[in-house]
């Protein structure tokens, strides 16, 4: 029992990332009808927003500290981050420590801008082109974005730690009445899961309870009619693209403490996210979220030692296997709507 709960928990953080990326992909597909292979790159750019902010925060200038001397007896030169000057040392330390959560604020405008630029500059011209062309051009864009990041940040993963307060692990088992130390779970992963839930809830609430969201949903159902009613649906869809970019970016920001960001993390996640979208059902938002968590948890179950003993290698292929079975038996995916991407 405790092992099962542990595996469910383990699956949640990866599942959250899948769900967030797949949610954005589905938003873009549902509104604009574009298959965005560059979505993983947006996830990666988000992660590098966190790296950038923590670098900006630790920008320092050299100050001669007369009170201390080095081994030659000269006054010691110390690097002092600018934030110390502005907020004092204690507050400055806290700010640097909380760089990753702070990056959320930093990443939102950047990701929105990147999303807008992408949609207006490139994807707009591909609405009428076939899906294969859309896949290809966004695949090219993903390569370009990835190489730009590689040029500026190098090829090695950059460790970006979580704030001290979340660094430890949390004994989840005690809470549920198991023996201590049976179910231990890192704090940050819980934070990530909660964060993902908040974002997902926010997106759904936005679509469900605002006028803007209502128009967008109407546009997803029948774009032409909405346009005929005198509503500029294209502009709203552009905004949705930006929102999808922000969602992917935030997923990337918060993922940095779990996995140090590197330039190809986007592609690694993208392949799986596409599988998630297809399993959930092309164009179905709840399907994307459900499939994201489902596949994340399945993956962590498949990597239990007992399961691997039974079927060797299952942990490597479970997601693809599920996708193949689903695609062949339920072509529309778990919750796919009728008429979306049907042959």
């Amino acid at each position: 029992m405790d092992a099962i709960i542990l595996q469910i928990l383990n699956g949640l953080d990866k599942g959250s990332a899948y769900a967030l990326i797949a949610l954005g992909l589905t938003l873009i597909f549902g509104t604009l009808g574009v298959v965005n292979f560059a979505h993983g790159a947006l996830f990666m750019i988000g992660a590098f927003c966190a790296v950038t902010l923590s670098r900006i925060l630790t920008l320092s200038h050299t100050v001669v500290d007369d009170s201390r001397t080095d081994f030659l007896g000269n006054p010691l030169k110390v690097e002092v981050p600018y934030v110390y000057d502005w907020f004092g040392q204690a507050a400055g330390d806290t700010i640097i420590d909380w760089a990753v959560p702070l990056s959320i604020l930093f990443a939102i405008p950047i990701m929105a801008l990147v999303g807008l630029a992408m949609e207006r500059g490139l994807i707009k011209h591909f609405y009428k082109r076939p899906h294969a062309d859309q896949i290809l051009v966004t695949f090219g864009l993903a390569i370009v974005l990835q190489e730009i990041i590689k040029y500026f940040y190098g090829a090695n993963p950059i460790p970006t730690p979580a704030p001290d307060a979340f660094r430890g692990s949390f004994d989840f088992g005690v809470l549920l009445g198991f023996d201590p130390n049976t179910i231990i779970y890192p704090f940050w992963r819980l934070v990530y899961f909660a964060f993902a839930m908040v974002i997902i809830a926010a997106v759904f609430a936005f679509l469900q309870f605002t006028t803007f969201g209502m128009v967008v949903r109407a546009g997803m159902a029948d774009r032409e009619t909405v346009g005929l009613l005198g509503i500029n649906i294209d502009r709203r869809f552009t905004v949705m693209f930006a929102i999808a970019a922000v969602v992917a970016g935030l997923a990337g920001v918060m993922y940095t403490p779990i996995n140090s960001p590197n330039y190809h993390m986007g592609m690694d996640f993208l392949v799986l996210s596409f599988v998630v979208v297809v399993v959930g059902g092309m164009g179905s938002l709840p399907g994307a979220v459900l499939a994201g968590f489902l596949l994340g948890i399945l993956e962590s179950f498949a990597s239990m030692a007992a399961v691997i003993d039974l079927i060797p290698g299952i942990n490597q292929v479970i997601i693809y296997l599920v996708a193949i079975v689903i695609l062949l038996t339920r072509p529309r995916g778990l919750m796919g709507r009728k008429g979306v991407m049907e042959d």
Partner: peptide, 19 residues
């Protein structure tokens, strides 16, 4: 399947073979 589903299926098979 055809279209993007075909792309994803082939991708899934290839990744499975790789793994």
């Amino acid at each position: 399947r055809s279209g993007i589903y075909f792309s994803i299926l082939t991708l899934a098979f290839a990744q499975m073979s790789f793994a």
